[in-house]
Design a protein around this nucleic acid. Structure first.
Lengths: 242, 242
DNA sequence: AATTATTTGTCCGTATGTATG
DNA sequence: CCATACATACGGACAAATAAT
Protein backbone atom coordinates (compact mmCIF):
# COMPACT_ATOMS: atom_id res chain seq x y z
CA UNK A 1 0.00 0.00 0.00
CA UNK A 2 2.65 2.62 0.92
CA UNK A 3 4.05 4.20 -2.21
CA UNK A 4 7.73 4.07 -1.38
CA UNK A 5 10.22 2.51 0.98
CA UNK A 6 10.51 5.41 3.38
CA UNK A 7 6.72 5.49 3.92
CA UNK A 8 6.75 1.78 4.52
CA UNK A 9 9.45 2.11 7.15
CA UNK A 10 7.72 5.17 8.59
CA UNK A 11 4.55 3.19 9.20
CA UNK A 12 6.47 0.30 10.68
CA UNK A 13 8.41 2.45 13.14
CA UNK A 14 5.51 4.80 13.83
CA UNK A 15 3.02 2.13 14.76
CA UNK A 16 5.59 0.32 16.89
CA UNK A 17 6.04 3.51 18.91
CA UNK A 18 2.36 4.44 19.19
CA UNK A 19 1.39 0.89 20.10
CA UNK A 20 3.96 0.88 22.87
CA UNK A 21 6.39 -1.64 21.43
CA UNK A 22 9.01 1.10 21.69
CA UNK A 23 8.62 3.07 24.91
CA UNK A 24 9.20 6.81 25.38
CA UNK A 25 12.80 7.49 26.36
CA UNK A 26 14.00 4.46 24.48
CA UNK A 27 16.94 4.91 22.13
CA UNK A 28 16.45 3.87 18.51
CA UNK A 29 19.25 2.00 16.71
CA UNK A 30 21.54 4.32 14.81
CA UNK A 31 20.80 5.09 11.18
CA UNK A 32 23.44 2.72 9.85
CA UNK A 33 22.20 -0.18 11.96
CA UNK A 34 18.55 0.39 11.04
CA UNK A 35 19.59 0.57 7.43
CA UNK A 36 21.17 -2.88 7.68
CA UNK A 37 18.35 -4.34 9.82
CA UNK A 38 15.64 -3.34 7.37
CA UNK A 39 17.70 -3.85 4.26
CA UNK A 40 17.26 -0.31 2.97
CA UNK A 41 19.63 2.56 2.37
CA UNK A 42 20.50 5.23 4.92
CA UNK A 43 18.61 7.75 2.79
CA UNK A 44 15.39 5.81 3.27
CA UNK A 45 15.96 5.54 7.01
CA UNK A 46 16.66 9.26 7.30
CA UNK A 47 13.53 10.17 5.36
CA UNK A 48 11.40 7.91 7.54
CA UNK A 49 12.95 9.59 10.58
CA UNK A 50 11.86 12.96 9.19
CA UNK A 51 8.32 11.66 9.08
CA UNK A 52 8.53 10.51 12.70
CA UNK A 53 10.01 13.77 13.95
CA UNK A 54 7.41 15.78 11.99
CA UNK A 55 4.86 13.94 14.15
CA UNK A 56 7.04 14.61 17.18
CA UNK A 57 7.31 10.93 18.00
CA UNK A 58 11.10 11.09 18.12
CA UNK A 59 13.86 13.61 18.66
CA UNK A 60 17.37 13.37 17.29
CA UNK A 61 20.53 15.01 18.48
CA UNK A 62 24.12 14.52 17.53
CA UNK A 63 26.17 12.06 19.46
CA UNK A 64 23.19 11.18 21.72
CA UNK A 65 21.23 9.44 18.99
CA UNK A 66 17.47 9.31 18.45
CA UNK A 67 15.04 8.85 21.32
CA UNK A 68 11.28 8.28 21.53
CA UNK A 69 9.58 11.40 22.91
CA UNK A 70 7.04 11.33 25.79
CA UNK A 71 3.41 10.74 24.84
CA UNK A 72 2.30 14.26 25.67
CA UNK A 73 4.62 15.62 22.98
CA UNK A 74 3.09 13.49 20.22
CA UNK A 75 0.87 15.16 17.63
CA UNK A 76 -2.20 13.10 18.37
CA UNK A 77 -4.26 14.73 15.64
CA UNK A 78 -2.19 13.32 12.84
CA UNK A 79 -4.33 10.83 10.88
CA UNK A 80 -1.54 8.27 10.86
CA UNK A 81 -1.02 8.42 14.61
CA UNK A 82 -4.76 8.10 15.16
CA UNK A 83 -4.88 5.19 12.80
CA UNK A 84 -1.95 3.47 14.53
CA UNK A 85 -3.52 4.04 17.94
CA UNK A 86 -6.93 2.81 16.79
CA UNK A 87 -5.31 -0.36 15.45
CA UNK A 88 -3.66 -1.14 18.78
CA UNK A 89 -4.70 -4.09 20.93
CA UNK A 90 -5.70 -2.04 23.95
CA UNK A 91 -7.65 0.74 22.28
CA UNK A 92 -10.79 0.98 24.38
CA UNK A 93 -9.66 4.06 26.26
CA UNK A 94 -8.48 5.71 23.06
CA UNK A 95 -11.79 5.15 21.30
CA UNK A 96 -13.65 6.61 24.25
CA UNK A 97 -11.51 9.71 24.07
CA UNK A 98 -12.17 10.05 20.36
CA UNK A 99 -15.88 9.74 21.01
CA UNK A 100 -15.75 12.39 23.71
CA UNK A 101 -14.16 14.83 21.28
CA UNK A 102 -16.73 13.97 18.66
CA UNK A 103 -19.57 14.62 21.10
CA UNK A 104 -18.14 18.08 21.68
CA UNK A 105 -17.29 18.99 18.10
CA UNK A 106 -20.14 17.77 15.94
CA UNK A 107 -22.88 19.69 17.73
CA UNK A 108 -20.68 22.79 17.66
CA UNK A 109 -20.19 22.36 13.92
CA UNK A 110 -23.92 22.00 13.32
CA UNK A 111 -24.58 25.11 15.33
CA UNK A 112 -22.15 27.00 13.11
CA UNK A 113 -23.81 25.52 10.05
CA UNK A 114 -27.18 26.85 11.19
CA UNK A 115 -25.56 30.25 11.49
CA UNK A 116 -23.51 30.32 8.30
CA UNK A 117 -25.20 28.13 5.69
CA UNK A 118 -25.95 29.88 2.39
CA UNK A 119 -28.42 28.82 -0.32
CA UNK A 120 -25.88 26.59 -1.99
CA UNK A 121 -25.12 24.77 1.26
CA UNK A 122 -28.79 24.28 1.99
CA UNK A 123 -29.44 22.85 -1.44
CA UNK A 124 -26.57 20.40 -0.91
CA UNK A 125 -27.89 19.36 2.48
CA UNK A 126 -31.40 18.83 1.13
CA UNK A 127 -30.00 16.73 -1.67
CA UNK A 128 -27.99 14.57 0.72
CA UNK A 129 -31.04 14.10 2.89
CA UNK A 130 -33.08 12.92 -0.09
CA UNK A 131 -30.41 10.35 -0.89
CA UNK A 132 -30.46 9.25 2.73
CA UNK A 133 -34.22 8.82 2.59
CA UNK A 134 -33.92 6.73 -0.54
CA UNK A 135 -31.33 4.41 0.96
CA UNK A 136 -33.26 3.66 4.17
CA UNK A 137 -33.89 0.14 2.94
CA UNK A 138 -30.35 -0.65 1.91
CA UNK A 139 -27.62 -1.43 4.41
CA UNK A 140 -24.77 -0.67 2.04
CA UNK A 141 -26.07 2.59 0.65
CA UNK A 142 -27.05 3.92 4.08
CA UNK A 143 -23.50 4.13 5.44
CA UNK A 144 -22.25 6.15 2.47
CA UNK A 145 -25.33 8.40 2.38
CA UNK A 146 -25.07 9.03 6.10
CA UNK A 147 -21.43 10.08 5.78
CA UNK A 148 -22.28 12.36 2.85
CA UNK A 149 -25.08 14.03 4.81
CA UNK A 150 -22.82 14.77 7.75
CA UNK A 151 -20.14 16.06 5.40
CA UNK A 152 -22.57 18.46 3.72
CA UNK A 153 -23.58 19.88 7.10
CA UNK A 154 -19.97 20.15 8.12
CA UNK A 155 -19.13 22.00 4.93
CA UNK A 156 -21.88 24.52 5.67
CA UNK A 157 -20.14 25.50 8.89
CA UNK A 158 -17.62 27.41 6.77
CA UNK A 159 -14.88 26.48 9.21
CA UNK A 160 -11.98 24.66 7.56
CA UNK A 161 -10.38 23.83 10.89
CA UNK A 162 -13.45 22.11 12.24
CA UNK A 163 -13.94 20.21 9.01
CA UNK A 164 -10.39 18.94 9.05
CA UNK A 165 -10.64 17.95 12.69
CA UNK A 166 -13.91 16.10 12.45
CA UNK A 167 -12.83 14.36 9.29
CA UNK A 168 -9.72 12.80 10.85
CA UNK A 169 -11.81 12.02 13.91
CA UNK A 170 -14.38 10.14 11.85
CA UNK A 171 -11.74 8.19 9.98
CA UNK A 172 -10.27 7.05 13.27
CA UNK A 173 -13.64 5.97 14.61
CA UNK A 174 -14.62 4.36 11.35
CA UNK A 175 -11.52 2.21 11.14
CA UNK A 176 -12.16 0.57 14.48
CA UNK A 177 -15.92 0.47 14.13
CA UNK A 178 -16.55 -1.36 10.91
CA UNK A 179 -17.33 -4.50 12.83
CA UNK A 180 -19.68 -2.68 15.16
CA UNK A 181 -21.25 -0.96 12.16
CA UNK A 182 -22.17 -4.34 10.80
CA UNK A 183 -23.92 -5.09 14.05
CA UNK A 184 -25.90 -1.88 13.88
CA UNK A 185 -26.85 -2.59 10.29
CA UNK A 186 -28.17 -5.97 11.33
CA UNK A 187 -30.67 -4.07 13.44
CA UNK A 188 -32.60 -3.62 10.23
CA UNK A 189 -34.68 -0.93 8.61
CA UNK A 190 -36.61 0.12 11.70
CA UNK A 191 -33.67 1.74 13.50
CA UNK A 192 -32.59 3.42 10.28
CA UNK A 193 -36.07 4.84 9.92
CA UNK A 194 -35.80 6.25 13.42
CA UNK A 195 -32.37 7.71 12.63
CA UNK A 196 -33.79 9.25 9.48
CA UNK A 197 -36.27 11.32 11.49
CA UNK A 198 -33.49 12.58 13.72
CA UNK A 199 -31.49 13.58 10.67
CA UNK A 200 -34.45 15.46 9.26
CA UNK A 201 -34.87 17.35 12.54
CA UNK A 202 -31.27 18.46 12.38
CA UNK A 203 -31.62 19.54 8.76
CA UNK A 204 -34.76 21.56 9.45
CA UNK A 205 -33.13 23.47 12.29
CA UNK A 206 -30.09 24.23 10.15
CA UNK A 207 -32.21 25.49 7.27
CA UNK A 208 -34.26 27.68 9.59
CA UNK A 209 -31.10 29.04 11.16
CA UNK A 210 -32.06 27.93 14.66
CA UNK A 211 -28.57 27.56 16.09
CA UNK A 212 -29.15 26.10 19.53
CA UNK A 213 -31.99 23.96 18.28
CA UNK A 214 -29.68 22.48 15.65
CA UNK A 215 -26.97 21.83 18.21
CA UNK A 216 -29.34 20.07 20.62
CA UNK A 217 -30.86 17.92 17.91
CA UNK A 218 -27.42 16.77 16.81
CA UNK A 219 -26.69 15.88 20.42
CA UNK A 220 -29.87 13.85 20.50
CA UNK A 221 -28.91 12.11 17.28
CA UNK A 222 -25.43 11.21 18.51
CA UNK A 223 -26.69 9.96 21.84
CA UNK A 224 -29.38 7.87 20.23
CA UNK A 225 -26.94 6.22 17.87
CA UNK A 226 -24.52 5.62 20.71
CA UNK A 227 -27.30 4.08 22.79
CA UNK A 228 -28.31 1.80 19.93
CA UNK A 229 -24.71 0.74 19.51
CA UNK A 230 -24.38 -0.14 23.17
CA UNK A 231 -27.61 -2.11 23.21
CA UNK A 232 -26.66 -4.21 20.25
CA UNK A 233 -23.16 -4.74 21.56
CA UNK A 234 -24.61 -6.03 24.83
CA UNK A 235 -26.99 -8.27 22.93
CA UNK A 236 -24.22 -9.78 20.84
CA UNK A 237 -22.09 -10.28 23.92
CA UNK A 238 -24.98 -12.19 25.50
CA UNK A 239 -25.36 -14.43 22.47
CA UNK A 240 -21.67 -15.21 22.22
CA UNK A 241 -19.98 -14.77 25.59
CA UNK A 242 -16.29 -15.42 25.74
CA UNK B 1 16.32 28.91 15.29
CA UNK B 2 15.73 25.65 13.34
CA UNK B 3 18.27 23.03 14.31
CA UNK B 4 19.34 21.90 10.86
CA UNK B 5 19.21 22.83 7.21
CA UNK B 6 16.27 20.66 6.25
CA UNK B 7 14.08 22.14 9.00
CA UNK B 8 15.05 25.60 7.90
CA UNK B 9 14.03 24.86 4.33
CA UNK B 10 10.91 23.09 5.56
CA UNK B 11 9.75 26.20 7.37
CA UNK B 12 10.54 28.40 4.42
CA UNK B 13 8.61 26.27 1.94
CA UNK B 14 5.83 25.40 4.38
CA UNK B 15 4.99 28.97 5.32
CA UNK B 16 5.15 30.08 1.69
CA UNK B 17 2.50 27.49 0.88
CA UNK B 18 0.23 28.11 3.87
CA UNK B 19 0.45 31.86 3.42
CA UNK B 20 -0.61 31.52 -0.20
CA UNK B 21 2.61 32.53 -1.87
CA UNK B 22 2.54 29.14 -3.54
CA UNK B 23 -0.99 28.22 -4.61
CA UNK B 24 -2.57 24.74 -4.58
CA UNK B 25 -1.99 23.00 -7.89
CA UNK B 26 1.26 24.86 -8.42
CA UNK B 27 4.31 22.84 -9.39
CA UNK B 28 7.40 23.13 -7.20
CA UNK B 29 10.83 23.32 -8.84
CA UNK B 30 12.47 19.94 -9.14
CA UNK B 31 14.78 18.76 -6.40
CA UNK B 32 17.94 19.56 -8.34
CA UNK B 33 16.81 23.13 -9.09
CA UNK B 34 15.71 23.79 -5.50
CA UNK B 35 19.02 22.41 -4.33
CA UNK B 36 20.86 24.96 -6.48
CA UNK B 37 18.46 27.83 -5.67
CA UNK B 38 18.80 27.40 -1.92
CA UNK B 39 22.45 26.37 -1.97
CA UNK B 40 21.91 23.09 -0.16
CA UNK B 41 22.36 19.47 -1.12
CA UNK B 42 19.64 17.35 -2.68
CA UNK B 43 19.51 15.32 0.53
CA UNK B 44 18.42 18.40 2.46
CA UNK B 45 15.79 19.28 -0.12
CA UNK B 46 14.42 15.76 -0.08
CA UNK B 47 14.19 15.69 3.69
CA UNK B 48 12.35 19.02 3.74
CA UNK B 49 9.96 17.59 1.15
CA UNK B 50 9.27 14.66 3.45
CA UNK B 51 8.29 17.13 6.15
CA UNK B 52 5.91 18.88 3.76
CA UNK B 53 4.31 15.68 2.55
CA UNK B 54 3.93 14.41 6.13
CA UNK B 55 1.76 17.49 6.64
CA UNK B 56 0.02 16.75 3.32
CA UNK B 57 0.91 20.13 1.89
CA UNK B 58 2.47 18.57 -1.21
CA UNK B 59 2.35 15.39 -3.22
CA UNK B 60 5.15 13.99 -5.35
CA UNK B 61 5.09 11.57 -8.23
CA UNK B 62 7.73 10.53 -10.69
CA UNK B 63 8.07 12.43 -13.91
CA UNK B 64 5.19 14.80 -12.98
CA UNK B 65 7.08 16.47 -10.15
CA UNK B 66 5.81 17.86 -6.87
CA UNK B 67 2.56 19.83 -6.61
CA UNK B 68 0.91 21.80 -3.80
CA UNK B 69 -2.16 19.91 -2.58
CA UNK B 70 -5.59 21.55 -2.14
CA UNK B 71 -6.28 23.25 1.18
CA UNK B 72 -8.81 20.68 2.33
CA UNK B 73 -6.11 18.00 2.24
CA UNK B 74 -3.77 19.90 4.57
CA UNK B 75 -3.34 18.67 8.14
CA UNK B 76 -4.53 21.87 9.75
CA UNK B 77 -3.92 20.61 13.26
CA UNK B 78 -0.20 20.49 12.88
CA UNK B 79 1.34 23.13 15.18
CA UNK B 80 3.64 24.35 12.42
CA UNK B 81 0.81 24.82 9.94
CA UNK B 82 -1.22 26.66 12.56
CA UNK B 83 1.75 28.82 13.39
CA UNK B 84 2.37 29.60 9.71
CA UNK B 85 -1.29 30.44 9.17
CA UNK B 86 -1.46 32.59 12.30
CA UNK B 87 1.60 34.52 11.12
CA UNK B 88 -0.01 35.33 7.76
CA UNK B 89 -1.05 38.85 6.76
CA UNK B 90 -4.71 38.05 6.23
CA UNK B 91 -5.36 35.92 9.30
CA UNK B 92 -8.60 37.35 10.65
CA UNK B 93 -10.76 34.54 9.31
CA UNK B 94 -8.29 31.94 10.53
CA UNK B 95 -8.22 33.34 14.05
CA UNK B 96 -12.00 33.39 14.15
CA UNK B 97 -12.08 29.73 13.19
CA UNK B 98 -9.57 28.89 15.89
CA UNK B 99 -11.69 30.74 18.40
CA UNK B 100 -14.80 28.89 17.32
CA UNK B 101 -13.09 25.57 17.95
CA UNK B 102 -11.88 26.78 21.30
CA UNK B 103 -15.39 27.81 22.30
CA UNK B 104 -16.52 24.28 21.56
CA UNK B 105 -13.63 22.39 23.12
CA UNK B 106 -12.79 24.15 26.37
CA UNK B 107 -16.26 23.86 27.91
CA UNK B 108 -16.37 20.21 26.89
CA UNK B 109 -13.00 19.62 28.53
CA UNK B 110 -14.13 21.29 31.75
CA UNK B 111 -17.25 19.17 31.79
CA UNK B 112 -15.09 16.07 31.54
CA UNK B 113 -12.84 17.40 34.29
CA UNK B 114 -15.84 17.78 36.58
CA UNK B 115 -16.65 14.16 35.86
CA UNK B 116 -13.18 12.63 36.07
CA UNK B 117 -11.03 14.71 38.42
CA UNK B 118 -9.45 12.74 41.27
CA UNK B 119 -8.03 14.10 44.56
CA UNK B 120 -4.66 14.74 43.00
CA UNK B 121 -6.17 16.75 40.16
CA UNK B 122 -8.28 18.79 42.55
CA UNK B 123 -5.28 19.59 44.71
CA UNK B 124 -3.41 20.77 41.62
CA UNK B 125 -6.33 22.94 40.49
CA UNK B 126 -6.67 24.51 43.94
CA UNK B 127 -2.97 25.24 43.96
CA UNK B 128 -3.10 26.91 40.56
CA UNK B 129 -6.06 28.98 41.63
CA UNK B 130 -4.19 30.20 44.70
CA UNK B 131 -1.32 31.31 42.49
CA UNK B 132 -3.78 33.06 40.21
CA UNK B 133 -5.26 34.89 43.20
CA UNK B 134 -1.81 35.99 44.32
CA UNK B 135 -0.92 37.37 40.90
CA UNK B 136 -4.05 39.46 40.43
CA UNK B 137 -2.01 42.60 40.92
CA UNK B 138 0.78 41.73 38.52
CA UNK B 139 0.37 41.89 34.76
CA UNK B 140 3.27 39.58 34.03
CA UNK B 141 2.50 36.87 36.54
CA UNK B 142 -1.19 36.77 35.63
CA UNK B 143 -0.70 35.49 32.09
CA UNK B 144 1.46 32.57 33.22
CA UNK B 145 -0.78 31.75 36.20
CA UNK B 146 -3.87 31.85 33.99
CA UNK B 147 -2.32 29.41 31.52
CA UNK B 148 -1.27 27.10 34.35
CA UNK B 149 -4.78 27.11 35.80
CA UNK B 150 -6.37 26.16 32.49
CA UNK B 151 -3.76 23.46 31.98
CA UNK B 152 -4.49 21.93 35.38
CA UNK B 153 -8.20 21.76 34.57
CA UNK B 154 -7.44 20.31 31.19
CA UNK B 155 -5.23 17.65 32.72
CA UNK B 156 -8.07 16.64 35.03
CA UNK B 157 -10.22 15.75 32.02
CA UNK B 158 -8.08 12.60 31.63
CA UNK B 159 -8.39 12.88 27.88
CA UNK B 160 -5.02 13.04 26.14
CA UNK B 161 -6.59 13.84 22.79
CA UNK B 162 -8.41 16.89 24.09
CA UNK B 163 -5.35 18.09 25.92
CA UNK B 164 -3.23 17.84 22.81
CA UNK B 165 -5.86 19.58 20.71
CA UNK B 166 -6.46 22.48 23.05
CA UNK B 167 -2.77 22.94 23.64
CA UNK B 168 -1.93 23.46 19.96
CA UNK B 169 -5.04 25.61 19.69
CA UNK B 170 -3.87 27.86 22.51
CA UNK B 171 -0.38 28.18 21.07
CA UNK B 172 -1.87 29.34 17.79
CA UNK B 173 -4.08 31.90 19.47
CA UNK B 174 -1.34 33.03 21.79
CA UNK B 175 1.12 33.72 19.00
CA UNK B 176 -1.19 36.18 17.28
CA UNK B 177 -2.63 37.62 20.42
CA UNK B 178 0.35 38.82 22.39
CA UNK B 179 -0.32 42.35 21.23
CA UNK B 180 -3.97 42.12 22.13
CA UNK B 181 -3.01 40.57 25.44
CA UNK B 182 -1.04 43.67 26.25
CA UNK B 183 -4.16 45.70 25.60
CA UNK B 184 -6.18 43.55 27.94
CA UNK B 185 -3.51 43.82 30.60
CA UNK B 186 -3.63 47.58 30.31
CA UNK B 187 -7.21 47.31 31.49
CA UNK B 188 -5.73 47.02 34.94
CA UNK B 189 -6.48 45.09 38.08
CA UNK B 190 -10.24 45.52 38.05
CA UNK B 191 -10.93 43.32 35.04
CA UNK B 192 -8.52 40.71 36.37
CA UNK B 193 -10.40 40.72 39.66
CA UNK B 194 -13.62 40.07 37.75
CA UNK B 195 -11.97 37.27 35.78
CA UNK B 196 -10.70 35.77 39.03
CA UNK B 197 -14.26 35.33 40.29
CA UNK B 198 -15.24 33.57 37.09
CA UNK B 199 -12.27 31.24 37.45
CA UNK B 200 -13.26 30.42 41.01
CA UNK B 201 -16.80 29.58 39.88
CA UNK B 202 -15.43 27.14 37.34
CA UNK B 203 -13.14 25.56 39.91
CA UNK B 204 -15.94 25.12 42.43
CA UNK B 205 -18.18 23.37 39.95
CA UNK B 206 -15.35 21.04 38.93
CA UNK B 207 -14.54 20.15 42.53
CA UNK B 208 -18.20 19.48 43.29
CA UNK B 209 -18.50 17.35 40.17
CA UNK B 210 -21.30 19.45 38.70
CA UNK B 211 -20.66 18.72 35.05
CA UNK B 212 -23.10 20.97 33.23
CA UNK B 213 -22.59 23.74 35.73
CA UNK B 214 -18.85 23.61 35.08
CA UNK B 215 -19.38 23.68 31.33
CA UNK B 216 -21.70 26.66 31.45
CA UNK B 217 -19.42 28.62 33.75
CA UNK B 218 -16.50 28.08 31.41
CA UNK B 219 -18.68 29.35 28.57
CA UNK B 220 -19.43 32.44 30.61
CA UNK B 221 -15.75 32.93 31.33
CA UNK B 222 -14.75 32.64 27.68
CA UNK B 223 -17.50 34.94 26.50
CA UNK B 224 -16.65 37.54 29.10
CA UNK B 225 -12.99 37.58 28.18
CA UNK B 226 -13.88 37.75 24.50
CA UNK B 227 -16.23 40.67 25.18
CA UNK B 228 -13.56 42.50 27.16
CA UNK B 229 -11.12 41.96 24.32
CA UNK B 230 -13.50 43.39 21.76
CA UNK B 231 -14.28 46.43 23.90
CA UNK B 232 -10.65 47.30 24.40
CA UNK B 233 -9.85 46.70 20.75
CA UNK B 234 -12.61 49.12 19.78
CA UNK B 235 -11.34 51.65 22.30
CA UNK B 236 -7.79 51.49 21.00
CA UNK B 237 -9.03 51.79 17.44
CA UNK B 238 -10.89 54.94 18.44
CA UNK B 239 -7.80 56.45 20.06
CA UNK B 240 -5.52 55.68 17.15
CA UNK B 241 -7.53 55.37 13.92
CA UNK B 242 -5.62 54.54 10.80
C1' DA C 1 2.72 0.63 -29.67
C1' DA C 2 7.29 1.58 -28.86
C1' DT C 3 10.75 4.96 -27.58
C1' DT C 4 12.58 8.76 -25.19
C1' DA C 5 12.98 12.34 -21.88
C1' DT C 6 12.21 13.97 -17.37
C1' DT C 7 11.59 13.65 -12.55
C1' DT C 8 11.28 11.26 -8.26
C1' DG C 9 13.15 7.33 -5.69
C1' DT C 10 17.09 4.74 -4.05
C1' DC C 11 21.85 3.54 -2.97
C1' DC C 12 26.28 4.58 -1.10
C1' DG C 13 31.15 6.55 -0.37
C1' DT C 14 32.69 10.39 1.87
C1' DA C 15 33.17 14.46 4.71
C1' DT C 16 31.84 17.59 8.53
C1' DG C 17 29.79 19.01 13.01
C1' DT C 18 29.05 18.21 17.73
C1' DA C 19 28.79 16.39 22.13
C1' DT C 20 30.80 12.72 25.32
C1' DG C 21 34.43 10.44 27.79
C1' DC D 1 43.27 18.00 24.04
C1' DC D 2 42.33 13.79 21.82
C1' DA D 3 39.54 9.91 20.45
C1' DT D 4 35.00 8.24 19.73
C1' DA D 5 30.31 7.87 18.18
C1' DC D 6 26.58 9.67 16.37
C1' DA D 7 23.66 12.80 13.37
C1' DT D 8 24.09 15.86 9.56
C1' DA D 9 25.40 17.07 4.96
C1' DC D 10 27.28 16.48 0.32
C1' DG D 11 27.06 14.59 -4.44
C1' DG D 12 27.61 11.01 -8.10
C1' DA D 13 25.36 7.08 -9.85
C1' DC D 14 21.57 4.28 -11.15
C1' DA D 15 16.56 2.44 -10.93
C1' DA D 16 11.72 3.12 -11.63
C1' DA D 17 7.80 5.36 -13.18
C1' DT D 18 5.27 7.98 -16.46
C1' DA D 19 4.11 11.90 -19.72
C1' DA D 20 5.17 13.22 -24.25
C1' DT D 21 6.69 12.07 -28.80
Amino acid sequence: MPKNLSEQLLHELGSSIVQGKRQPGELLPKVETLSEMKGVSRTVVREAMKGLSARRLIESSTRTGTVVRPREAWLWWDPDIISWAAAAEENQSFLMQLTEVRLAMEPAAVKLAAKNADEEDIAAIRHRYDLLEQSVNSEDEWVAADAAFHEAILHASHNELMQSLIQTLQEGLYQSRHTTMRILQRAGDSSRRMALDLHRDVMTAVIEGKEDEARMRMETLLHTVSRLLKEYEAEVKKEAPK
